[in-house]
Design a binder for these strands. Sequence first.
DNA 1: GCAAAAAAAGATAAAAAACTCTTTTTATTT
DNA 2: AAATAAAAAGAGTTTTTTATCTTTTTTTGC
Lengths: 151, 151
Amino acid sequence: MLRNYNKMFSKSCEYAIKAMIFVAQKSKDELRVGIKDIAKGTDAPEHFMAKIMQDLSRKKLVQSIKGPNGGFYMDKSNLNCSIADVVKAIDGDGIYSECVLGLKACSEKNPCPVHFEYKEIKKNLIKMIELNTIGEFNSKLDTGKYFLKNG
Amino acid sequence: MLRNYNKMFSKSCEYAIKAMIFVAQKSKDELRVGIKDIAKGTDAPEHFMAKIMQDLSRKKLVQSIKGPNGGFYMDKSNLNCSIADVVKAIDGDGIYSECVLGLKACSEKNPCPVHFEYKEIKKNLIKMIELNTIGEFNSKLDTGKYFLKNG
DNA sequence: GCAAAAAAAGATAAAAAACTCTTTTTATTT
DNA sequence: AAATAAAAAGAGTTTTTTATCTTTTTTTGC
């Protein structure tokens, strides 16, 4: 054990969620944010974040424009997307479907020993990521009481 | 995204939990279980499982005896250990302490945007893994309604 | 004491995830 | 048209996790 697991989401996914919130925040008035700003604003490695943004952009979770004054921004529908949408885009839908003990065959009819206990937790987790939209974080961050990076 | 994340626990940890439940189940009457049986009974790669069992044994979550008729088994106190104990032994206590967005500085006073929503989920998750002891799974598995492996 | 059985330990390999660097494409401004 | 700015794409490296293979140590039964 060299790690210290946690890992509800992959690192890429953590970065993606933070980036989405950051871009939403910064692009309120049609402004575009560059990859450098996004990386700085979320404590993420720049080139790695670039890859993630490309991915999110390809999947239309965020808008991008090349060239001078280009960058990333969000339209109305992007602001409406939930954390769950981001998670699904980056980590897939394992959070919906996979057994907490990794059993492929685990199901209601063929449950692992913790299936039903975990079911409740999963339900709440899914509710949480589905109900929180990216746009809603704007007001939260505006209060200055929430943070996207250390220090 | 080649993965399909999920990953509440690492693979090692999934195997460890299953192994603990399996050994508890099989060693009810002072019997010892060998690594081959454990691997088979949990759908885990044998040598990898061996490593994990060594780890659990070193940390006294399970007992082991070498030589002919040796193997793994559990004493009373082992049966009393919770899933949380196994998780902490293998994955560390990140599940208790780490921010879901990976922010080192995230805390009650310096919360990330999802801190308080996640707090509730985390509380339930911790409750679940702390209240479920390994020994308690015996009766569950005895009913034949729960499974530790596919197929 | 010797052979066999089993876990422990050591060392290596393969796969996946995280991260970096370089080149290309697209758009803008002068 | 040329220079520049920015994202996109491609190709690589490093680190971590997962998995395998080999040797050593311990215990038991003969």
